[in-house]
Computed example of a mutant assay.
Amino acid sequence: MMHGPLPDQQDHSEAATGKPLVAALGQALALCNRVIEVIWGTLAFVLLMMLAVLLLCFFPGISTWLPDLVMGSDGR
């Protein structure tokens, strides 16, 4: 069983030149940077959702106001 690229293939990546740890760390850091970028991009939306949940917990009438207006307060 042969591991790695075939001898006639030219692979000039860091993993092929004998620095697999450096290559793996580089890929891990690139992944972490992408994850952090996604987290920062969605943070505003997550905070707004948390604020909405808190508002509904402290003022539950907000969620029942429109149905009461349309259906009537007795629900019929």
Rank of each mutant, 00 (worst) to 15 (best):
F58N: 00
M50W: 15
A23L: 01
K19H: 15
I36E: 14
D74R: 01
G26N: 00
C32P: 06
V46S: 11
E37N: 08
S13M: 01
G18A: 13
L69K: 15
V35I: 12
A16C: 02
M1K: 02
P20R: 10
M1S: 04
V35Q: 05
R76F: 06
F45S: 15
T64N: 08
G4A: 00
P7N: 10
F59G: 01
R76D: 03
L31W: 12
G26K: 08
V46D: 08
G75F: 07
L48W: 12
I36P: 07
A16E: 06
A15R: 00
E14I: 14
A44K: 10
L21Y: 08
L69R: 14
H12N: 15
A30C: 05
A44W: 05
A15Q: 06
M1A: 10
T64R: 10
S73M: 04
M49S: 14
C32L: 15
A16F: 00
A23W: 10
A28L: 15
M49A: 13
H12F: 14
P20S: 10
T17L: 04
G41W: 07
D68I: 00
S63G: 12
L31E: 15
F45N: 14
V53E: 12
V22I: 11
L56N: 12
L51Y: 09
M50K: 14
W40P: 02
L48V: 13
K19E: 13
D68N: 08
E14F: 09
V70D: 03
V38M: 13
A30P: 05
L29F: 04
C57A: 02
P60M: 02
A23D: 04
A52L: 13
G41Y: 03
P5G: 04
G18P: 10
F45G: 13
P20V: 12
E37Y: 11
D8P: 07
V70G: 03
V38C: 01
M2Y: 07
T64D: 03
G61H: 04
T42N: 14
P20I: 13
T42F: 14
G61A: 05
G26H: 00
V53P: 02
F45Q: 08
T17E: 03
M71C: 08
I36F: 09
A52G: 02
W40D: 10
Q9T: 06
L29C: 06
L69M: 12
D11M: 06
V70S: 04
S73L: 03
A23Y: 14
L51W: 07
N33W: 09
C32N: 14
M50I: 14
W65D: 06
G75C: 04
L21E: 00
L47W: 06
D8M: 11
